[in-house]
């Protein structure tokens, strides 16, 4: 194209911006995690003190625990959400598919803060769920395990991030050609074979992308354990947040580093297994 230098460089603005204000801060996070802590700030140096602090305290245990409840949120989201993606792809008229998927944009676009908080009057001791169950006589005492508890955190994560499993799952299902289903009908594949042999392998990149999104956000969004977890409920995001509040910046950076490395490791494994670039096929 006949463009002069300036026109050409305009297109590099986003790249430059993201290198400066996204990639650089992420890389420097790792560097800062080795800095020496001072009373209100930090100074250049090389120490593993922050990591020692992390691994020898309850934080490491909490980190692993938050990985577990995040994994639970992923599994629940998959079970609830992925069949919806499959259903829309297979049984809804082609022209209407996107519109049905768009239904899930609406809850996703309401403030996460409000959505997470809104679970309190629903799940609480005298919340909607308990009142309803008591009114129809299924229980006599309010169920307390669904709020201010690990279960409450998982429920909150699922309510917050479920739509992403549906979006990513649908995007992956969209790349599966119609003939695949017809061949399976012809060969006589039942629902179980169809799901296990065909749908899951073909949609794997999308399922994985959705799962990673839900996993890291469940680990990293402090709001959910803060508002819905019981006393002492934390996840990686909240540990980092608490470190910032305590002005222990190297510790916050160390936790962020561990979180980022967890993410990179997951993405690397996923890429080796499923070739995540396939997720991009519909838009290239």
């Amino acid at each position: 194209m006949g463009e002069n230098g300036i026109q050409k460089w305009v297109f590099y603005i986003p790249v430059i911006f993201f290198v400066l204000f996204f990639a650089a801060p992420i890389v420097l996070t790792i560097v800062f995690s080795f800095f020496e802590r001072t009373q209100f700030w930090m100074e250049p140096g090389f120490t593993l003190f922050a990591y020692e602090n992390f691994f020898t305290s309850a934080r490491a245990e909490n980190y692993v625990f938050s990985m577990l409840h995040s994994a639970a949120a992923v599994v629940v989201s998959f079970i609830i959400g992925f069949p919806i993606a499959v259903f829309v792809r297979r049984r809804v008229a082609k022209a209407a598919q996107h519109r049905v998927i768009l239904l899930f944009i609406l809850p996703f676009m309401i403030s996460e803060l409000v959505r997470v908080f809104a679970m309190r009057p629903v799940l609480g001791r005298n919340g909607v769920v308990n009142n309803f169950l008591i009114d129809i006589g299924i229980i006599n005492e309010p169920i307390t395990v669904i709020l201010f508890s690990p279960l409450g955190v998982v429920i909150g994560d699922v309510m917050s991030f479920l739509p992403f499993m549906i979006f990513a799952g649908f995007l992956a299902m969209e790349a599966v050609q119609n003939y695949v289903f017809e061949v399976c009908d012809d060969l006589g594949a039942g629902p179980v074979s169809l799901f296990g042999d065909i749908i899951v392998p073909l949609a794997a990149p999308g399922i994985f992308a959705g799962s990673v999104f839900i996993f890291v956000n469940s680990m990293g969004v402090a709001l959910v354990p803060t508002l819905l977890g019981g006393p002492g409920a934390v996840n990686a995001g909240l540990i980092a947040n608490q470190a910032i509040v305590a002005l222990d910046f190297p510790l916050a950076m160390a936790i962020s580093t561990i979180m980022i490395l967890t993410l990179v490791l997951l993405l690397y494994i996923g890429h080796r297994l499923f070739d995540l670039t396939k997720v991009l096929e519909p838009i290239s």
């Binding site: 061949v183 009908d185 012809d186 060969l187």
Partner: peptide, 11 residues
Amino acid sequence: PPNKRPTSMVF
């Protein structure tokens, strides 16, 4: 349905 018929399809 297709799988209950003695037919097979090449697409």
